[in-house]
């Protein structure tokens, strides 16, 4: 598989992930809405708050890799735009390398949180008593996924740069997507 096709594959894969995450958020919105309506008639699910928090944590971690491939993580390109394409490619690779290292460290440091919850059999400090491991496992996997995708992207982009295909590397790891809606 060429580096380019590999990147396209990664992007498709993460678009799928993002759609699932989006559906999860939509489901959470529906759940909260239903609870508001139920409260008007004097009852309630209870615990919508707690569940929204878990959805947010998991959605955040699993969305990270998609945002990366969509060039969504904000970068300041003051210096970068002034460089020729070769220099830009070098900066992009460097920045990608740093990101991959830091994200790996984050994923690594997230493991003890889950390990601790497993060891203590921790349950949320709420009437629901949600076992924390149930929600921290998918959360941790999201960060691990982000780390894996970062290294894979770095690797593919490095091949493009080495081949001198700067346009393609810029499309993969440049600073901004083409003027789509930011934030």
């Amino acid at each position: 598989m060429t580096a380019e096709r590999f990147l396209a594959f990664l992007r498709r894969l993460n678009t799928g992930v993002a759609i699932l995450v989006g559906i999860g958020l939509l489901g959470c919105a529906a759940f909260v809405l239903l609870d508001i309506v139920l409260r008007q008639v004097g009852t309630s699910f209870g615990g919508t708050d707690e569940i929204s928090g878990y959805v947010m944590a998991v959605a955040t971690s699993w969305g990270m890799a998609f945002t990366l491939l969509e060039l969504g993580h904000v970068r300041i390109d003051l210096l970068r735009t002034r460089l020729p394409s070769r220099g830009r490619a070098a900066m992009d690779l460097f920045s990608m390398l740093i990101l991959a290292v830091v994200v790996t460290l984050i994923a690594w440091q997230c493991w003890p949180v889950l390990a601790n919850s497993l060891r203590n059999g921790s349950t949320a400090n709420t009437p629901l008593e949600t076992p924390l491991a149930w929600v921290q496992t998918p959360w941790l996997l999201g960060w691990v996924w982000f780390a894996l995708v970062s290294w894979a992207t770095l690797f593919a982009a490095a091949i493009l740069v080495l081949r001198g295909e700067f346009d393609k590397s810029e499309a993969a790891i440049g600073a901004f997507a083409e003027t789509e809606t930011l934030q």
């Binding site: 601790n116 919850s117 203590n120 921790s122 349950t123 949320a124 400090n125 924390l132």
Partner: peptide
């Protein structure tokens, strides 16, 4: 102490 009961019921 109540804040920590998640880890120690």
């Amino acid at each position: 102490a109540d804040y920590a009961v998640a880890d120690a019921p």
